[in-house]
Amino acid sequence: MKQLEIIGFKRANLGKQVSKDLRNESFVPGVLYGGAEQVHFYAPAILFRDLVYSPEVYEVDLNIEGTHYRAILQDLQFHPVNEMLLHVDFLELQEDKPVKIDVPVKFVGTSPGVIVGGKLVTKLRKLRVKALPANLPDSVEVDISDLELGKSIKVSKVKPANYEILTNANAPIATVTIPRALKSAQAEEARGKK
């Protein structure tokens, strides 16, 4: 799992006005939970860019006034109009406690359905997994090398290694759709054989 450091400062005062003042100074308020105590902190908004605007999953080294915490991003809140990051929640990682996290899907192989003119449509970009911190995957590999035209690959086809997949087993991850041009060509061909 990729690493990222975020340097923050403890918050002495909590409340809406204090949080608003922090945001006006380009800081993002946050909270770290899951450990011995909750830690309320704030950090410069620029430090969250790689963490928030990336499909990757990061293990975060939260450096709050010299105290280091291993954590993962649990939740984000954005402003509804200007998309500004308003608040972040982190979960502290503990070696013996399993964690639930959304991990990106990575397709491997070449679909025969795509080779003959179909279009690969991604239905799920991330899968929810549960694992101990040491076993958290960077991505879940989905083999599409036997995905034919008009067929789907479901979550149940994915073989997890050292982690459990929590996403519904019947949910489709990807489908190879038949484009209109190919459908009309098949219809013409069927009419010609009659």
Rank of each mutant, 00 (worst) to 15 (best):
M1I: 11
L4S: 03
K10S: 11
A12N: 13
N13D: 13
L14S: 05
R23G: 10
E25M: 11
E25K: 15
S26A: 13
F27I: 00
G30H: 06
V31Q: 05
G34Y: 01
G34S: 04
A36C: 00
E37A: 07
E37H: 09
Q38C: 03
H40Y: 14
Y42P: 00
S54C: 09
P55S: 14
E59C: 05
L62K: 08
I64D: 02
I64Q: 01
E65Q: 14
E65W: 04
G66W: 02
G66P: 01
T67N: 13
T67K: 15
T67A: 12
H68V: 14
H68G: 07
R70Q: 15
R70D: 15
I72A: 07
I72K: 04
Q74T: 01
D75P: 03
Q77T: 12
Q77H: 09
Q77C: 07
P80F: 01
V81C: 00
V81D: 08
E83V: 06
M84C: 07
M84D: 15
L86S: 06
L91D: 00
Q94F: 08
P98N: 08
P98Q: 05
K100F: 02
I101M: 07
D102L: 13
P104K: 10
V105Y: 03
T110M: 09
I115N: 05
I115S: 10
V121A: 12
V121D: 06
T122M: 12
K123R: 15
L127M: 08
L132V: 04
A134M: 10
N135D: 15
L136I: 15
L136M: 12
P137S: 10
D138S: 14
D138W: 00
E141Q: 13
V142T: 03
S145F: 02
G150S: 11
K151W: 04
K151I: 01
S152E: 12
I153H: 05
K154P: 01
V155I: 02
V155G: 09
N162L: 11
N162W: 02
T167P: 00
T167N: 06
N168M: 03
A169H: 11
P172M: 03
A174V: 06
I178C: 12
K183Q: 14
S184Y: 14
E188F: 09
A190D: 06
R191C: 00
G192R: 11
K194A: 09
